[in-house]
Computed example of a mutant assay.
Amino acid sequence: MSVSCPPSTTCAANRGRRIALTAVLACAFGSNAGNLQVAPIVLEFSENQQANALWLENNGDQAVHAQIRVQQWSQTGASDVLAPTQALRASPAIIQVLPGERQLVRIVRPAPLPATIAYEQAYRVWVDELPEANAQRPSGLQFLLRYSIPVFVLPHAALPREQISTAMEDAHRLQTSWQFATGVLVLDAHNAGNQRVRLSELGWRADNGTVTPLHPGLLGYVLAGQDMQWKLPLTTQLPHPGHLQARLNDAPAAQPLLSAGR
Rank of each mutant, 00 (worst) to 15 (best):
R198A: 08
G242E: 04
G209N: 11
A189M: 00
H190Y: 15
P252R: 04
L257Q: 09
G242P: 12
L187F: 06
Q255S: 12
H215R: 13
A254K: 09
V197D: 01
D188C: 05
L219V: 13
L223M: 05
Q255G: 08
Q226R: 12
R198S: 11
V197Q: 02
A224L: 02
K231S: 15
H215D: 00
P216H: 03
G183D: 12
V184D: 08
E201H: 09
R198Y: 00
G217K: 04
T235V: 09
S259K: 04
Q245I: 06
A260V: 13
L234T: 07
D250L: 14
R247L: 11
R205C: 10
G217S: 06
A181V: 02
K231R: 15
L257W: 04
L223F: 05
R198I: 14
P256T: 08
Q255I: 10
T236R: 15
G217T: 05
L218W: 03
T182F: 05
L187M: 06
T210P: 01
A246W: 04
T236K: 14
S200A: 12
T210H: 13
A206V: 09
H215N: 12
L223H: 06
A192N: 10
N208G: 05
E201C: 01
M228N: 14
P252L: 07
A206I: 12
A251Y: 02
P216R: 10
R196C: 02
Y221R: 08
Q255P: 08
L219T: 07
R196H: 15
V186M: 05
N249I: 06
G203M: 05
A260K: 06
Q195V: 15
L238W: 10
L232N: 00
L238S: 04
P239L: 05
N191R: 10
L248H: 06
G203Y: 03
H240V: 14
P252A: 12
H190Q: 13
A253E: 10
A253W: 08
D207K: 03
A224F: 11
A206D: 07
V184G: 00
P252H: 08
R196T: 03
G225L: 10
A192D: 12
L214Y: 12
A192V: 00
D188L: 07
H190R: 14
G225V: 07
G209E: 11
T236E: 15
N249F: 08
A192W: 00
L185Q: 08
V184C: 04
H240L: 15
D250E: 12
A181F: 07
S200T: 01
T236I: 14
L258S: 11
V197C: 11
G209K: 06
L234R: 01
Q195C: 03
A260R: 15
L223D: 02
G209I: 11
Q226P: 07
G209Q: 10
Y221P: 00
R196A: 07
P216D: 09
Y221I: 02
H240C: 03
L258F: 10
L219I: 09
R205F: 04
P239A: 14
N249H: 04
Q226V: 05
L248K: 06
G242A: 11
G242M: 06
Q195H: 00
D250P: 00
V197P: 01
V222L: 04
A206G: 15
T235Y: 13
P256W: 04
G183F: 05
Q237M: 09
G217M: 03
S200D: 00
K231M: 13
P241N: 03
R205W: 01
D188R: 14
A246V: 08
T235K: 13
W230K: 02
L185P: 08
A224H: 00
V211Y: 02
